[in-house]
Design a protein around this nucleic acid. Structure first.
Lengths: 359, 359
DNA sequence: CTCCATTCGGAAAGCGCTATCCTGTAACTA
DNA sequence: TAGTTACAGGATAGCGCTTTCCGAATGGAG
């Protein structure tokens, strides 16, 4: 094989203004200084007095120099970015939280990125691993979590992987991982919110109150359903399994489920829904069945999604502190000290979809 | 000054299982191979036959090794990520587009990140620069753009900066940059959508049709307003400046604007709104004024935001192809060839908020 | 048993940057 | 004038990885 010698290795610069990718060495050469000096100037670590200072700046400008953040990060310099990981990005639920976190994080000079898993565990794992490889600074793992034991272990392993690369994991809107008080956690009061809803209905004279949504499997489902049980307990009312309407978190699915449920249970006067989305589907179904809200039946949602105040009737719901959760998470991400775990309060908001029980 | 000698410099490995950050060299040492071999094995570039192969894998496992993606990227290896840049993240408008793009991009193994500018030009510039520094692969710049000339130049400079680091810029949901056919562009037919809306109203007998929203300054505003003018022209109706209701893109602002507009213009029978958000505000205001939709007045939105089909009455609107735009953008980002510029069609959807003109 | 074709794996050169030294020169104090 | 003190800025050693380029095994063929 002929010894093909690579040309112009370490030769004189062939022409710096090629506008093709220029690096620090090129800039330094054009400015007639050492790379060290160029680095100092461009990173603002120079007093800025000397004449070479301006030459470097001019050279960088002329060459259209863009610093290589990867190389810089490798030296452990620069702010590390913050990743917001949730199941979905459509829907204002997470968006509100993300926007709040982004605000505070961006202001501190970090790059904020939003990533989604589509509820796929494998995708989630791959994503977190990928983020760890890219040396992200903080991962915000957001939203309902499977309550299966192996899932808890999986999350714990995320915390370990991230910890190994100097990144932190913050759980948002989900319960803490058992036996891992070291994993930061911000949740809000799902149980208390639903409990307030039930108590409100009891106060209005309702006695046959259905619960619409899943009751187990995911943390949010279990937490909210627990509130339903607690509310009924408080009113000394036995829970009736027949009044549980399982449905996916989707208006259409909810509408279908309610439509099937209604004929069998004409005595039900109120529906407590796992989410606003479900409540919307319920309302649709109720209207289709000739029932009027809130005259005949009352409906309550959860989340206080934007726009639900504009429905007719306006939806009575539980306002979740998405903004507050995101804000706090962002502050922790940028270094604010935080002691492990917190549960933020929710606010029960009475609007037009609930009224006195008929009779 | 006492010459403080740094300890254990290049000394024998003190104990690899420290679980603190382990690097490739540590793994190689533990597996009793060279870093080169370890690299080959971990990157799946080894035939996998040799015994050392398994030793490397075991060592990596034991040390909890996480490859440094930064260092790897510096060698020009690995997929580069895709950034979705828009003004806001709340609201389903962008979310739908982002979700579609994310789907295809993630499937191809890229990291997808969503970033926001909050409509702040300076923030946008800083963000794009930051992304360029981090050697992102593609930037999707999404949503309405200022039509000022300097803004066009700014966007052109983004394309240049990104180009210099081997990244591409794709404009989504905004018009192309003049004289820069090299900048990829995906827009949808704002003008045609509004024009259809106006024509629909004309067909229903409406003659006094107001336009609600800004009419200039941002590209989307100009494009949609142009549709209003074109529709009126087609119906041979003179445009009446008094029927333009300027308002921010926000239900509350729109409601206020309409409330002030109504008393002066009792003859108006239809409102074409710049967005669904504005239409919702308009509806609220109309109802408050005792006017019923669509019996007394007709209202049309734009975007076909989720939930607007659930309003009472369901909103007649223009369905924007957010999903299609995002999907196409994603495909271009992962390398599908694309010839510069395209405008996707919209779909006018008649629902319950429009009806025959009264009288 | 020797020779050549493979394959495996090590040494070493960077990728582009920053950090630690260290020297030369300018600016001061005595 | 001599003796610091200051600081600009050069040389250089990496950060953790990949990747030629080669030598050393290994194995099959003659």
């Amino acid at each position: 094989m002929s010894t093909t010698e690579s040309p112009e290795r370490r030769g004189a610069s062939p022409g710096p203004e090629r506008s093709g990718k220029a690096n620090l060495v090129d800039v330094a050469r054009l400015a007639r200084v050492s790379p060290a000096t160029a680095s100092r100037v461009l990173a603002g670590r120079s007093k800025g007095k000397a004449a070479s200072h301006d030459r470097v700046l001019a050279a960088a400008e002329e060459l259209g120099y863009v610093v290589n953040g990867l190389a810089r990060s490798m030296m452990g310099v620069g702010r590390r970015s913050v990743a917001f990981v949730s199941a979905v990005m459509v829907g204002p639920t997470f968006a509100t939280m993300a926007a709040a976190a982004e605000q505070v994080v961006t202001e501190d000079g970090h790059l904020f990125m939003l990533c989604t898993t589509h509820g796929d565990t494998e995708r989630e794992r791959a994503l977190i691993e990928s983020l760890a490889e890219q040396r992200v600074g903080t991962v915000l793992l957001v939203g309902s979590a499977s309550t299966a034991e192996q899932d808890e272990q999986r999350v714990a392993s995320y915390a370990d992987s991230l910890g190994r690369v100097g990144a932190q994991l913050i759980l948002c809107g989900r319960p803490p991982v058992a036996h891992r008080p070291d994993i930061a956690n911000i949740d809000y009061d799902h149980t208390g919110g639903v409990r307030s809803a039930v108590e409100h209905l009891l106060g209005l004279g309702h006695r046959r109150i259905a619960y619409v949504g899943m009751t187990a499997g995911m943390s949010t489902e279990e937490q909210r359903f627990r509130g339903y049980r607690a509310g009924l307990d408080g009113g000394a009312i036995e829970i009736d399994e027949a009044l549980l309407v399982p449905t996916e978190n989707d208006p259409d699915a909810a509408a279908t489920a309610i439509a099937a449920f209604l004929p069998e249970h004409p005595d039900v006067t109120a529906f407590v829904c796992h989410t606003d989305h479900i409540a919307i589907g319920a309302g649709r179904s109720l209207r289709a069945a000739g029932l009027s809200v809130p005259e005949h039946v009352s409906v309550i949602g959860f989340d206080d999604t934007p726009l639900v105040a504009d429905l007719t009737p306006a939806l009575t719901t539980v306002h979740a502190p998405f903004r507050e959760v995101g804000d706090l998470a962002g502050r922790i991400a940028i270094g604010e000290p935080f002691g492990g775990s917190v549960v933020l309060p929710v606010e029960f908001i009475v609007r037009g979809s609930t009224g006195p029980a008929p009779r």
